[in-house]
């Protein structure tokens, strides 16, 4: 919930239809979802269940065919291009499966770039980025370019970049898909810690059981609609879900 009691994120009756030639693909079918501030939510389900489409809509990267997506009470479909860019810059952090760091910027500059766009003063940027890089275990690697970092290290930079701008929500699309188990555990530890200590809201799309185990709420999607919505303790995971998610 936001300070005025409304969910930080709310999807009501969201439908998304894609057209692939003459074929109509309904990726989401009346999706309803509300996420409160500080939640650590995983959208899970098999391929084609609509996880990534939902994340794209929440992240203001795409617009729904029907229904509404509200972030902090503002309906995204009513915002202009410029307002959507500002919304993505100021209120949303992204962590992508393929890291997607800017190759010409160093780790430090990648983490700093969104804050620079926000107009945050240089000293404040520096203090915050240095602390964040230290928090994600990249102290001393600030000046390395992405090609000089391992996959796990790049994903840590991506997490630092997503957090640096003080977003309302961090959207992580399969963040552990391209890293080994040990690195995945470390990344999840970092995000869980940021969630616990700084109250950052995380919404994941995943079918990785490790992510589902870390999540405090599991929203299962099937054929573009919510099938299950379970709150649980961090670290627990029903083996049946593992089977379904995998």
């Amino acid at each position: 919930m936001t300070s005025n009691g409304t969910p930080i994120l709310q999807l009501d009756g969201v439908t998304k239809v894609f057209h692939q030639g003459d074929i109509e693909v309904r990726a989401l079918r009346g999706l309803d979802l509300a996420v409160n501030q500080g939640e650590f939510v995983a959208l899970w389900g098999p391929s084609g269940s609509g996880k990534t489409t939902a994340l794209n809509l929440i992240g203001a990267l795409d617009s729904p065919t029907e229904g509404s997506v509200k972030l902090e009470g503002r309906e995204l479909s009513k915002l202009s291009r410029r307002e959507l860019s500002a919304m993505r810059r100021d209120r949303i952090g992204f962590v992508f499966q393929a890291y997607n760091l800017i190759p010409v910027l160093t780790a430090y500059e990648n983490a700093e770039s969104v804050m620079a766009l926000q107009g945050v003063p240089p000293k404040e940027r520096r203090d915050r980025v240095m602390k964040l890089l230290a928090d994600v275990g990249l102290g001393g690697m600030e000046h390395r370019r992405p090609h000089e970092l391992s996959g796990g290290q790049q994903q840590r930079v991506a997490i630092a970049r997503a957090i640096a701008s003080n977003p309302a929500v961090v959207l992580a699309d399969e963040p552990t898909a391209n890293v080994d188990s040990a690195t995945a555990e470390k990344l999840l530890d970092i995000m869980a810690k940021l969630n616990a200590e700084q109250g950052v809201t995380f919404v994941f799309s995943t079918h990785d059981p490790r992510v589902m185990r870390y999540a405090k709420r599991l929203v299962g999607l099937v054929d573009g609609a919510v099938d299950t919505d379970i709150e649980k303790a961090q670290g627990e995971l029903d083996p049946e879900m593992v089977a379904l998610g995998g």
């Binding site: 990267l61 810059r89 992204f94 997607n100 969104v114 766009l117």
Partner: peptide
């Protein structure tokens, strides 16, 4: 192209 998509996603506007 992918990189421009990322820039737009993380908040870079068309003007930038």
């Amino acid at each position: 192209i992918r990189e421009f998509g990322v820039l737009k996603a993380i908040g870079y506007g068309p003007g930038q």
